[in-house]
Amino acid sequence: MRTSRLEAFSDGVLAIVITIMVLELRVPESEEGHVATFADLVDAHLVPVIFSYILSFVYIAIYWNNHHHLMSTADHMSGSIMWANMHLLFWLSLVPFSTSWLGESHGAAAPAALYGLILLMAGVAYFVLSRMIIRAGGANSTLARAVGRDRKGEISPVLYALGIVMAFVWTPLSYALYVVVAALWLIPDRRIERLVAAQPDPTE
């Protein structure tokens, strides 16, 4: 099986994840006779909800972008790659739940810790998927040559784990650590882009 079917399925799942998250957003409640204004959007109850949505949207966008780059290095699919991909999608499918709980929790520790745990497990699943692609392609595959020592991949789990612990110490620091990890991954891996671009087009 070629990668196109797996990519299409993954794209569909991530699109549904984003749809579920946006449907969780609720318009500000107002009393009878109250004129709605933009000030209602910065209500203390809405700011955490909007923050959690934006952060989760960025994470899903990052995974979608990097998943595309990852799949571009695979020539064919194997059973281990397909199951590893499903493992990744399982954790990403839990993001809407953790996002909703985080936004409605008003800084509680448990939702922040669970949010970080799901992000951590999604990161682990992404790592496993990349290893399965390398195993299928061999030591000289495009991904194996591109990855090398993955510093971002080494740092991210540490920051996630620290964020989970900090959720029970000072929750804002936990949020900050999750934002830092997102910032690290905003730019896709340029090494993969360069190697894929350098490969000859098989259609020519």
Rank of each mutant, 00 (worst) to 15 (best):
S56P: 01
I18W: 11
V35T: 11
F51Q: 05
L23R: 09
A36T: 13
L25Y: 08
D43H: 10
D43G: 07
E32W: 14
F51S: 03
I54C: 02
L55C: 07
P28R: 12
H34E: 12
E32V: 15
T19G: 14
P28G: 04
E24Y: 04
S56E: 00
V22F: 04
T19D: 09
L41A: 08
R26N: 07
S30F: 08
V17H: 03
V49W: 01
V22W: 02
R26E: 04
S56M: 00
G33Y: 10
T37P: 11
V42Q: 07
F38S: 11
E24N: 12
I18A: 06
R26Q: 06
E29L: 13
L55I: 09
D43E: 05
V35N: 06
A44I: 13
R26F: 04
E32L: 14
H34M: 12
S30P: 07
I18N: 05
V27C: 06
F51K: 04
I20Y: 01
D43M: 06
V35Q: 09
D40Y: 14
T37S: 15
V49N: 01
I50D: 00
S52W: 03
T37G: 09
F51A: 06
V22H: 03
A44L: 07
P48S: 03
E31C: 12
P48Y: 02
S56K: 00
E24G: 13
